[in-house]
Every structure is written in C-alpha cells, then in structure tokens.
Amino acid sequence: MTNSNDKLALNTLRVGTALTLVGLAASVLGFGSPVFTWLWLEADWPEHRALAVDRAGACALLAAIPMLFVPRAWLGLKLAALWLLLVALATAATGSWYPWLAPADHASRILAPLAVALWAQRRSADAPVQWTLRVAAALTFAGHGVAALLGRGLFVDYALSVMFGLGAEPSQILAERMLFVVGIVDVACALAILVPARLRAVAIWMAAWGGMTALLRVYYAGWTQWPETLMRMANCAVPLTLFLLWKPRPEVSP
C-alpha cells in the first residue's frame, strides 16, 4: 500500500461492504432469504433445516465483517461472496418479477467482498481488483437500468414518492417517463464504466446515484427499512472506490 488515495479507497470499500453485510444479515435474520425459500419449497427441505441454513449464512456474513479489515483473511471474504452469489441465484430461481435480473442487481454486493479479498491477496488495487469493481458496478447499474426501462412498479412508486417529497403533484405517467430516462442513464453508465479510459465523472455519478437510491428505501418506507438501505451500500461504495483509485497521481520528479 503505497498511496494514501489507495488506502482511502480500500477503507471506503471495506466500510461500504461491511454496511452491506450488516444490512443483508439483518434482512435475513428478520425475514429470511431466497435461499430459505429455495431449500424449503424447491428442494423440499424441512422448514426448520432450511431456516437453520439461512440463519447460518446470515451469521457467517456477520462473521466476515472483521475479516474485511484483516489483511490476510481473504478466504473468509471469498466464502462470503460465494454465499451472496448463492443468494442471488436463489433469488433468480424463486423470484418473480424478471428473476433473471437478480444476479446483475446483486453484483456489487457479491463482488465487493471479493474485491477486498483480491486486494488483500495481491496487496494492491491492480487490474484484476479494478476490473472486479468495474464489472460489479456495471452489472448492478445494467440490472437496475433494465428494470427501470421495463417500468418496475416499485421504482414507479419511488419516483412518485420523490415527486411528492418535492412538492410536485405525483403523476404516474410522469414517473414512468422519469424512470425511462433513469433506465437509459443507468445502462449508459454501466457501459461507460467498462471502457478502458478511467472515467471519474461516471464513477462519481454512479456512487452518488447508488447512494441516493439506497437511501430512497428508508425515505420511501421509513426507518424500519434500514436493512434494505444498508444492503445497497455496496452500490455506492464500489464506484466510489473506483473514483478514489482513479484520482490522478502526482508526478514524481526524477
């Protein structure tokens, strides 16, 4: 670790991932996860056993949080990422509204702990780490962008709540139009973050938007929804990490 920007970036990613893991664990411990649903309904496990596995996964996520801050604990983070991948696949297998979008939507929360692990292993934010972050941000924005273009009802309601909050007359047609624009911008950002050039403006926009849309969950439905907001903190932290990493470095005089 040679650069203070890199340190800041790593700690940003660590904190964002830690918050995400807290949110995910709280949500599972409160209401269960799609892994439970899949094991119980599709794999025909007894309810108590499926619940036990679900809770075990949630507790393992909590146990992974300290590992984010320990340089050599990358194996635990990879296991956490693997579990989160299983959650995304279970969501796709048991979900309802365009379930094939779930793995893309979840990409940041899956790949953030993996990026921290890679960073710890490789001891620098080299190309594999940065591409992991880029792909994570791109998939998350692409998934949400497509959902917006498809007019997801919940997103329409979010847009309506923002209109209401701004004192405007809520209009579903207007909300759907807004959502269409949001979808286009999200997909464009998803593509832009993948171009070889380091587009810091795109990264900071994605970080801001990821943070705002995460906060929208509590704005829309109240503080009881805090796990929903926290679990989406990776959507902000991942592009913010890229933004910090891509800060131009001062030239070293010979």
């Binding site: 007894p46 036990a52 596995v53 809770r55 075990a56 949630a58 507790c59 393992a60 194996l75 296991l79």
Partner: peptide, 27 residues
Amino acid sequence: LPHVAVIVLMLGAAVVGMMTAPATSVA
C-alpha cells in the same frame, strides 16, 4: 493460521445461526 481462524470463526457463526433458528411446526 489466519485461514484456519477464518474458517473456524465462520463455522462458529454458522452454528450460532443454526442454533438460533426457531423451532417450526410440521405443517
């Protein structure tokens, strides 16, 4: 050693999770 510690910690947490799962009735 760190990896062994990690696995022990995660397994421990998982066991805690399993043990805190509420008993369920048979439908």
